[in-house]
Write a protein that binds this DNA or RNA. Structure first.
Lengths: 149, 149
DNA sequence: CGTGAAATCGACCGTAG
DNA sequence: CTACGGTCGATTTCACG
């Protein structure tokens, strides 16, 4: 993982459809060398996957929501993590330091849908307390990659 | 934007390197029709870009951090948003409801680096109060796409 | 939206530094 | 061990029906 690898990764992050010849011209290598490096980066797991960054609005999920969660004392934590991993709306779920146990990031079409999500969590007996935060605007939105349905 | 478009997007999200013929086989269209749909989706902005999802650990930024921020009363909010957009460590920045004004998500190599980040915010006279939360583990990590340097 | 042809691209090889 | 150039097969792309 040298400077050239980092440069290649930077170029791919901006546009993964650039040709090997094009990338090679930018980093000073032949297309086949670039190909070999990308192959290695992918095989080693540094590049997890080639994907697409989508516009949330076009996908009908304009509303970005963060939910801080404290699990019920009798909740099955492993089951909750598995549930989060499978839930199509949950884009991220992190076990965090501080007053709350988990931070969940999700996207919905509109705020009223959040209620259903929380009800679902409650029905599964995961939810102790929670606090919901809605993004009003996003100076740095970050990429949006939907989860497999 | 019909069901087939959604299906194509779902396939591309999982693996953007699949051939048009392969995708066509999965959705029941010819390669050229799939190509035309992807071209339209890209032109309309629904697909923002083709990119790569990376392993944060391989990139040397294992530590995921969320920082709640209340700006100083005399802070230039537009300047802060611009600063956040340009900052290479800041992956996301959202203006949010609730007690705090902004939620910032960033990745660093290790926790001590957070201190430098906060000091930088303070030096620019943006930072009023803040609260830092570190992710211990991530049941649903979400994709990692670095920002252009 | 599908078919076909043409141009381009990517994968794999042997070879060299 | 990594880079290079050439070849072949696959893929994208475009005009047309």
């Amino acid at each position: 993982m040298d400077d050239i690898d980092l440069k290649i990764i930077g170029l791919l992050a901006l546009d993964a459809k650039r040709s090997l010849a094009d990338i090679g011209g930018s980093v000073g290598l032949s297309p086949s060398s670039v190909n070999e490096r990308i192959r290695r980066l992918t095989a080693s797991g540094a590049i997890r996957q080639f994907t697409v960054d989508l516009d949330p609005a076009a996908m009908g999920v304009q509303t970005l929501v963060f939910v801080w969660i404290a699990l019920r004392e009798d909740a099955d934590e492993a089951a909750f993590r598995d549930y989060a991993a499978r839930h199509p709306l949950i884009l991220e779920c992190h076990h965090v330091t501080g007053a709350w146990a988990y931070l969940v990031k999700l996207r919905v079409g509109a705020p009223p849908e959040i209620e259903g999500f929380l009800a679902e969590l409650k029905a599964h007996r995961y939810l102790g307390r929670s606090e919901t935060v809605i993004a009003l605007s996003s100076p740095v939105p970050g990429p949006f990659v939907p989860k497999e349905s």
